[in-house]
């Protein structure tokens, strides 16, 4: 019939997955507001957790936008924003030696040590 694939799971209704450009990096014609990453503390006693990102011209606007976009239903008691370009990240490659040292140091885990069952409170 259509010869054009649609995915229903374009969420709010079917959208075509063929005959539509996918966009390439950095092709917008306007200078964009910088991208900020947003972290929200859900309630007192919890860490801030990354929830997403947004665009803002400066830090203050980023905080205001973060409140409107990510905390409309009491999702948080505190918000951090940081420009995405300031985030340093490890390589996603599993072969990366970054996490290897923890693999061969089993003695760092409590289960490494066998203690008789009748010793209390261990």
């Amino acid at each position: 019939m259509s010869g054009q694939d649609f995915t229903t799971e374009g969420g709010h209704g079917a959208v075509p997955l063929q005959g539509v450009p996918a966009a390439k990096p950095g092709h917008g014609s306007e200078r964009e507001w910088p991208l900020y990453e947003v972290f929200v503390r859900g309630k007192r006693g919890l860490n801030h957790v990354h929830v997403g990102s947004l665009h803002a011209a400066d830090d203050e606007m980023a905080l205001r936008h973060a409140r409107d976009v990510y905390t409309r239903r009491n999702e948080g008691v505190s918000v951090w924003v940081v420009q995405a370009r300031h985030v340093a990240a490890s390589s996603p490659d599993e072969k990366d030696p970054m996490f290897a040292p923890s693999g061969d140091k089993v003695y760092r885990h409590p289960t490494f040590y066998s203690i008789p069952d009748d010793v209390p409170h261990m």
């Binding site: 374009g10 709010h12 209704g13 959208v15 450009p21 966009a23 990096p25 917008g28 991208l35 665009h55």
Partner: peptide, 24 residues
């Protein structure tokens, strides 16, 4: 945007009708 595309370009593709949205 985590896939490396820019917000600005996506908006432009919408208003130029190159990308679609749900027909409903």
């Amino acid at each position: 945007e985590t896939l490396g595309v820019s917000r600005g370009e996506l908006t432009e593709m919408l208003i130029e009708g190159r990308q679609k949205y749900s027909s409903i």
